[in-house]
């Protein structure tokens, strides 16, 4: 899951990035409104965390333009403005959630999870495909009764697969949602990670969940 953080205060942006990365999210940072708007329109983010008081372009204006251009990405406003009017305006302009600073990081992560879940129309924080289950809050993965240990990157990749079952996921899509913009698309890193993941999830099980779609990419599905 790839998240854009639009925040002009460098240290705030930095700890949010660090914390979210440790939760296996891919995180990009924009330090002003213009940069934020540009990144939001170029890349396909799963969630945007948006500050309101931003240099160059106000956060509300960024929100307005993202929505006007037809982007439905979930947006969480993260700001020091805490009056009821500010919150109402923020939500009415098209944001999906509103969190005021200073905030608890645990709460931020929970809200991020909830927004991503809502996007995938899921009701709980447990994703399941067949007998494979993944908890987005505890990051525990199980196949049947067996607990599976994953590296952060493998976890991020699996989460993305499980949020998009029965759908062909091209390498470009995987790059966009699992890696941040420092990723070099010329490498075969994605194939390498998919293979790691296969070994841990499908090896030793009769029913394979990760399928290769020749010439396009990969797909996760329950049927053979």
């Amino acid at each position: 899951m790839r998240i854009l953080v639009v925040e002009d205060e460098k240290k705030v942006a930095s700890f949010i990035k660090k914390g979210l990365q440790e939760e296996h999210y891919a995180v990009d940072i924009a330090y002003d409104g213009e940069e934020g708007l540009a990144l939001a329109q170029i890349n396909e983010y799963d969630l945007i965390l948006l500050d309101i008081m931003l240099p160059k372009l106000d956060g509300m204006e960024v929100l307005r333009r993202i929505r006007r251009n037809g982007f439905g990405v979930p947006i969480l406003i993260l700001t020091a403005k805490d009056s009821v009017e500010d919150i109402v305006t923020g939500l009415d302009t098209g944001s999906d959630d509103y969190l005021t600073k200073p905030f608890s990081f645990a709460e931020l992560v929970a809200r991020v999870r909830a927004l991503l879940r809502r996007k995938a129309k899921e009701k709980t924080d447990i994703l399941t495909i067949g007998d494979l289950s993944l908890s987005t809050s505890t990051h525990r993965v199980k196949r049947g009764t067996r607990e599976i240990e994953l590296t952060p990157k493998e976890y991020a990749l699996l989460e993305y697969f499980m949020r998009n079952p029965n759908r062909i996921l091209t390498r470009a899509l995987i790059t966009e949602h699992v890696w941040d913009y420092h990723f070099d698309p010329e490498t075969n890193v994605i194939d390498v990670y998919v293979n790691y993941l296969r070994k841990k999830i499908d090896q030793g099980f009769e029913k394979k969940l990760i399928h290769t779609i020749r010439g396009s990419g990969y797909m996760m599905k329950d049927e053979p």
């Binding site: 205060e9 705030v12 700890f15 914390g19 990081f105």
Partner: peptide
């Protein structure tokens, strides 16, 4: 309060993230 809120946000966030592992 806004002026004090920014350093508070940083303190709280950095400490919380720091304590998560």
């Amino acid at each position: 309060s806004h002026e004090l809120r920014t350093p508070l946000t940083i303190l709280k966030g950095e400490i919380e993230v720091g304590l998560r592992r």
